[in-house]
Every structure is written in C-alpha cells, then in structure tokens.
C-alpha cells in the first residue's frame, strides 16, 4: 500500500497530486490536528515549514504545513483555511515540536491567534515595530508606514544643510 493510498484513506481530506513526490492535502480547520497526527504515524516525521498566505480576496488565511517523509522521500503539504477576521489556530507543537517557533512567527507577522501555544503573541522577530496592522497582511500599507516612521530619502548636501541649521 503506497503512501498516497494511505493519505487518500484518511477521513475528511481532499487530496491533489501535483508530482509523484509532492502531495497537497486540503483539510478543514477542525480536522487539522487529527490529520497531522495520522500523517506523522504514516511516516511524515519532519515538519519542514509552517507558514501562512493572506488570501485577501477570499477573506481568509491559508495556513500550510510542509511535511516530509524520510522513508518515502515524499513532501506532503497540508493546507487549511481560516477566516480573516478573528483568525484562530490550534497548536501543532504537540505533534511537531518545531511548530512552536513557526507559530510564534505567524502570530507576529499575520496576527493569527494560536491556542495552546503560550509564547504565540509575545515579541519574536520584530523590534520597535509601531504599526497597528501586522506587516505581512495584504492590507498593511508598507509605503505609508515607511514615510511615517523612517527618514525619506533626500540628497546628502540637503541633510548636511538641515543639520547645520539645527
């Protein structure tokens, strides 16, 4: 029984095969943890990446887990969609311990609340970030933030004159 058949046998998943060694698994948010648990038992022993995409037109975040099986040499990408307003996620750090740090990152960069992860929401990478929208959301106006907080570019002589005036 191949690993693809095993994945197709899991209840409540939508499987799409892009290549022989790259399998996409779409899953609802409430089934996510149980599917990850089953996948780990099948042989996907490594969490390579956990990140999110802001699908602003569909009003939802896509959270994806890239899993890898050392035995089968297969990547499995588990995708789940959560609503954009009041986004919540349950921690996967019990199954894959490296998820702890990744969840802190998406909590900071996307403003996703992670239940069960005590550190999610604490300051992680950003230093002195003063914006009210998390920076990797699509509605974060980067140019406006830069103009408000950093010195805009002017010619070197102009700056010197300004410094001398003051």
């Amino acid at each position: 029984m191949s690993v693809l058949d095993k994945i197709k046998g899991i209840e409540g998943v939508n499987v799409k095969v892009q290549r022989d060694n790259r399998i996409f698994v779409d899953v609802k948010e409430d089934k996510l943890i149980s599917v990850l648990y089953v996948l780990k038992n099948i042989g996907f022993n490594q969490l390579s990446l956990l990140s999110a995409v802001d699908r602003i037109n569909e009003e939802q975040f896509e959270v994806f887990y890239v899993l890898y099986s050392n035995r089968e040499k297969v990547n499995c990408i588990v995708r789940t969609y959560i609503p954009r307003d009041n986004p919540k996620l349950v921690t996967a750090a019990i199954i894959y311990p490296p998820a702890h740090a990744y969840e802190r990152e998406i909590a900071e960069m996307f403003g996703i609340k992670v239940e069960g992860n005590a550190d999610a929401g604490k300051p992680f990478i950003l230093e002195n970030f003063k914006g009210d929208v998390p920076p990797l959301r699509k509605d974060f106006n980067s140019m406006k933030y830069v103009n408000a907080h950093f010195q805009p570019f002017r010619h070197h002589d102009e700056v010197e004159l300004e410094a001398k005036d003051e």
Partner: peptide
Amino acid sequence: AINGGIYYDSYSVINRLDAYIPV
C-alpha cells in the same frame, strides 16, 4: 545604504543611513 535600494518600502529597512550616523 543611500536610499533603501530595492527595500525602499520595507517595513523594517531604514531608507537613509546618513540620517542616523554621519556618512
């Protein structure tokens, strides 16, 4: 270092170095 280069609109990269230390 002059004007931010390709990172001119990044949320974490400063645009001008000589506003903070003299170049």
